[in-house]
Nucleic acid binder design. Structure first.
Lengths: 182, 182
DNA sequence: GGGACCATGTAAATAGTTACATGATTAA
DNA sequence: TTAATCATGTAACTATTTACATGGTCCC
């Protein structure tokens, strides 16, 4: 009954009321380097959570158009606290690129090079997003005194993405070097 | 009809016939830092793949006990080649630790420290496994000339795990430093 | 004889993606 | 006016985990 989707939603709502759409956007930006959710998960989960008493739908105001916002209940906060005390589950990663690379028996190295290049540009962008989030964070007040923890999370993203890009550079120059053909 | 589980299995079988159990072990060791599968995926998938003509069950010999091994068919190889030519899907990661960290409003920092320590020891182990796989690889022949690619994959694991451990050290000393209480 | 690990599997529940549908609003 | 983005949702499918069950073998 507490799927991880429940938890991310509760966590985000613990700071301020949000709509399903807002929640998706926040996950895509702030958590992009270690988490993801789809609309198909978020909207049905929000409805379930209303029934379970974890969140409450706010009444609509004129200024927020069709937007349905939700706020966390005290039961929701309790649930979040209980989750905090439990050992995190073993992380799960799925990077298909490395499957392609591992199994690329004699396939054209140019194909692989292109895959790596798009991996590279996608993580270059991640790094940019992380840096702007970092800057944004330092310009706003820290009422919950959680900025230090958030900065640590960002720092994790910076370090891993930097490692990714380092690997891309090395691997690309190796593949391209070993393949200066014609 | 080609789930990623199909693909990992085909990839592994493209080098040699294996049983479901073998496949699981190989994924757990070689791919642990970027992929995972459970028995509940592997066994039913193998059966499906027999029906689809992608793999063939080998007859049992006396020396391999109850072990049912499978070999890849030519259709299986064709499928693998087709997959190679398709752009890899966006990777998916789920690291619950960072959710805990991001949402740890005023919860006991010792809890967080423990989570990070177990993350640290798990990735210290990953790094050891990677290094021994690397050593093993250099001591065996390279009939398919794919060792360079495999080494690149290993190098990715080394780099990311090293980044993880670097982050653990920094974050732990920060958390412990800011918390020399009593 | 017992514990660790080899070995295969199934059922039930849960999780998650994808494609589709709909309509409003904003900015060029 | 038209494209982008805001905003919510559902249905069908696919994927995945987990718990359970069973029995063999190897080594101490």
């Amino acid at each position: 009954m507490n799927s991880k989707t429940h938890i991310v939603i509760l966590g985000l709502l613990s700071e301020e009321p949000l709509s399903g759409y807002d929640i998706k956007k926040l996950i895509d930006i702030r958590f992009r380097f270690f988490w993801s959710e789809s609309y198909g998960q978020i909207y049905p989960t929000l409805k379930k959570m209303v029934n379970e008493g974890l969140v409450k739908a706010l009444s609509q105001t004129k200024d927020n158009r069709g937007k349905q916002r939700y706020e966390i209940t005290s039961l929701g906060r309790k649930t979040l606290t209980l989750w905090q005390a439990q050992e995190p589950e073993k992380e799960s990663l799925r990077l298909e690129l490395f499957l392609k690379m591992y199994f690329s028996l004699g396939s054209n190295p140019h194909i692989l090079i292109n895959y790596i290049k798009s991996f590279q540009s996608s993580h270059t962008q991640d790094l940019m997003i992380l840096n702007s989030f970092k800057k944004e964070l330092s310009s706003i007040p820290d009422p919950y005194q959680n900025h230090q923890n958030i900065l640590s999370v960002i720092e994790f993203g910076v370090k891993t993405n930097t490692a990714y890009l380092q690997w891309c550079q090395e691997t690309l120059s190796q593949l391209e070097g070993s393949h200066e053909s014609r």
